[in-house]
Design a protein around this nucleic acid. Structure first.
Lengths: 337, 337
DNA sequence: TAATTTGGAGTTACCGATAACTCATAAATA
DNA sequence: TATTTATGAGTTATCGGTAACTCCAAATTA
């Protein structure tokens, strides 16, 4: 590939002069400038970003680490992040963590090695603390998306788990449901904890009981969920509605319900946090508390770049984006009404 | 950040010795090796990939350029690409081209500057030729995904547009449709051309007529499509089914139909190429000729890396992945039956 | 014992750029 | 006219690694 030295030789000047033309720095006569510009074009010169990064100690590279790109929440978040990064003159490195701490660790290593200027990530869970500490120790700025990690201060873009859960619960209660079960995620994830707490709180506020067995904590093996749903429906007083703490759980639950011959919403209403489908869907099914996922990406990148360019205040910033309730087909009045 | 020189100083050896430990090259005594390893861990050393790339003339970076990450076809393709890239020890730079030649051009520049080892891309269209030539001139290996570009030989992963269109057309004919309209994309995109040709061919094979106005070429402005659909339905003999050349067009068409008060499939069946929703959807609606998009990504990356590592034959390789028909709710017998 | 091989390093140059400094010449000023 | 200033460059060192070469001492071989 062509380097500034090749250009310099052809132009009969030093490499530094070429560098000055490229960067528009220093003093250069208009004649020289035009001559070098012409030679650069003629030789198809493209600056080597790595060489520049090495000396500038800045890579103009950001990293986005999310659990799963195919989850519509992250799809749209990633799109927002990429758009915002390009607008600000940064490139974006993509990684899927798969809710797997080992993969996350590996990816953090990659990211450190790539000398990215900053990282935007949804941590796997509380145990991601060690990974974040690595970033912090190397002074790589990062912004946490969606999930908090206790013990780690940082810039954050969060949803409102409390409010979203309240909206979903209220919606079910308004429809007439009294027996509502909760399908939650791992207690090692901040959003799962908050959503569970808010659910309990809201149910209590409505004076509704939470029988033993109505609170399910799912792990990530589907068979577990199948069994848990089966057990739930086998109770003497089974729920008439199910609130899932995220789209992933709702999807699994509905599959389990279907395999048990239950119809949604006729036999059981199901609602959840986060969209279950991306914008391409014609006929959305799930009633959800949707989060502005594209904005998570855009604002995350902006916050990150502000931090990198030290335009941000010293203290950590925390943005909370409100959810919106979309009432669709998966929720209806309880069958008994 | 810690460099090999810092490690060398602390270990009382030369930087080269440290480099040898890192890369497991050359001869090193076990004692020295362990000492250096310990110091590296103690000082949280992380190798600088950019510095290494600079001297090795290899970045271990690949680039994925797709039109739109939020399109489920590309979402899943991107996921496949990321998984495969990581498996092979490469990082992935992500870019959305938005079917916009200017954006694509910009991105090609970025990619050249980043000195990626290879590029995986869905070209915007035939006019992408100039961009591909740039890559070729700089000897950057690339693999084309989904779309061909006339005049540019290269490795390719393609779907079977001919077969997929035939399947969709046959499906509609089998349901009893005789008046089928075609909503195609820009003739500057290879897949759009192929699908149109295959549609005409298949209709002819069934002895079915294609009245004037049944073949729509859409541009990317939605208002155009609205008007085109309106005109289509205002014909003396309007179609009973619509075959859209891709998911994007089908989505637009269905929105237009709904705003005209038409129900799908009761008033009009709609089928299309490519999934309209990603895996998270509970209740898929569209009848589609689905392409194995995840495999597009995985195989594309593998083909690319083979080429980079010169494990590939000199000649261009072309893989064609077959589509699968998923019959769902958007297609049914014509209303007149 | 002398010559050769081998193990375990160190030295130097270079990858492609930029920062900081230097320097000659022409123009402006005293 | 002598001195200062501005213009338009060039030189050198450096970013953090690795390739290629060198080199010495111990071990092996003739």
């Amino acid at each position: 590939m062509v380097t500034i030295y090749d250009i310099a030789q052809k132009a009969g000047c030093s490499a530094m002069t070429v560098s000055r033309v490229i960067n528009n720095t220093g003093r250069i006569s208009e004649a020289t400038r035009q001559r070098i510009l012409a030679i650069m074009k003629e030789m198809n010169y493209v600056p080597n970003a790595m060489a520049r990064s090495l000396v500038k100690q800045e890579s103009r590279l950001l990293s986005l680490l999310i659990p799963d790109l195919t989850n519509p929440f992250y799809t749209s978040l990633a799109r927002g992040a990429e758009d915002a990064a390009r607008d600000l003159g940064y490139r974006l490195l993509l990684g899927n963590g798969d809710e797997d701490l080992a993969k996350e660790k590996e990816y953090i290593e990659t990211v450190l090695s790539a000398r990215v200027d900053g990282v935007l990530l949804t941590p796997t869970g509380d145990q991601s603390l060690a990974h974040l500490k690595k970033l912090a120790k190397q002074r790589i700025p990062f912004v946490l998306l969606d999930r908090e990690v206790p013990g780690m201060g940082s810039d954050q873009i969060l949803g409102d788990s409390r409010e979203g859960t309240r909206m979903l619960t209220d919606h079910l209660v308004t429809l007439g449901h009294r027996r509502i079960a909760f399908l939650g995620g791992s207690r090692l994830v901040s959003t799962a904890r908050l959503r569970l707490a808010s659910f309990e709180e809201t149910m209590a506020a409505h004076g509704l009981a939470l029988p033993e067995g109505y609170l399910i904590e799912a792990d990530y093996r589907m068979k577990e969920i199948d069994r848990q749903i089966t057990a739930l429906l086998a109770m003497p007083e089974p729920p008439t509605a199910l609130l899932a703490a995220n789209n992933f759980l709702a999807l699994r639950a509905i599959r389990a319900l279907r395999s048990l011959g239950k119809r949604v919403p006729d036999d059981l209403s199901v609602v959840c946090f986060d969209e279950l489908e991306a914008g391409f869907v014609v006929d959305p099914f799930m009633t959800v508390a949707a989060q502005p996922s594209y904005d998570f990406g855009v604002m995350g990148i902006r916050m990150l770049v502000d931090r990198i360019q030290q335009k941000a205040p010293e203290s950590w910033r925390k943005v909370v984006l409100p959810p919106v309730l979309h009432v669709r087909k998966s929720s209806g009045p309880p069958a008994s009404l």
